[in-house]
C-alpha cells in the first residue's frame, strides 16, 4: 500500500486539568505547569503545558493515519520550538518527505505558531544489542 502523502490532522484543546493529570502521570511537579502564581513570575507570565503533553496531538495524528502495528514501531525526533499555554488549541499533522515512503516532516501548531517540529520515521533503525541509550 502506498504511504499517504500527509498525516490525518488531529486537534487538542489544552486545559489546566490536563496539565495536572499529566503531571501526575509523569511525576512532573514543576510549578511552571501547575502554579499560576509561580508562572506569573517567569518570562512566560502564565502556566505552560508540558512539551510532551502537547506532543499527544501528534500521537493522535499518527494513530489516525496508520494501523496499530505501524504506530507501535517508529522513531520520532522533535524539537519544542515555542511554549503552549492553557486555553490554546493545537493541531498536529505531517507530510511525507520527498523521495521516501517512510519519513515524514511532522509538526504541532497553535494558531500560526509552530510549537513542535521534527521528523517521524516508520522504518526505524535496529536497536543496539544491549545497554541503555537509543540508536540514532
Amino acid at each position: 500500500m502506498k504511504a499517504p502523502d500527509t498525516l490525518v490532522e488531529a486537534t487538542l484543546a489544552v486545559e489546566h486539568a490536563m496539565l495536572v493529570a499529566y503531571g501526575a502521570l509523569t511525576c512532573d511537579s514543576n510549578p511552571i505547569h501547575l502554579d499560576a502564581g509561580f508562572a506569573a513570575t517567569t518570562p512566560y507570565g502564565r502556566c505552560i503545558a508540558h512539551g510532551t503533553l502537547s506532543l499527544n496531538v501528534l500521537w493522535q495524528s499518527i494513530a489516525a493515519t496508520f494501523d496499530a502495528a505501524t504506530a507501535a514501531r517508529l522513531d520520532l525526533d522533535i524539537r519544542f520550538t515555542a511554549p503552549v499555554f492553557v486555553g490554546e488549541h493545537l493541531v498536529g499533522g505531517g507530510a511525507r518527505m520527498p523521495g521516501t515512503d517512510t519519513r515524514y516532516e511532522v509538526w504541532v501548531k497553535a494558531g500560526d505558531r509552530t510549537v513542535i517540529a521534527g521528523e517521524l520515521d516508520l522504518q526505524p533503525a535496529a536497536l543496539r544489542p544491549s545497554g541503555p541509550g537509543i540508536s540514532s
Binding site: 493529570a21 502521570l25 506532543l55 499527544n56 500521537w59 499518527i62 494513530a63 517508529l74 520520532l76
Partner: peptide, 18 residues
C-alpha cells in the same frame, strides 16, 4: 489519569512510551 490528561483519545504506543 490518562483519560483526564488527554481526553477523547485512547493512548497510542508512542504516547504511552513518551
Amino acid at each position: 489519569q490518562w483519560a483526564i490528561a488527554v481526553p477523547g483519545a485512547a493512548p497510542s504506543p508512542g504516547a504511552i512510551a513518551m
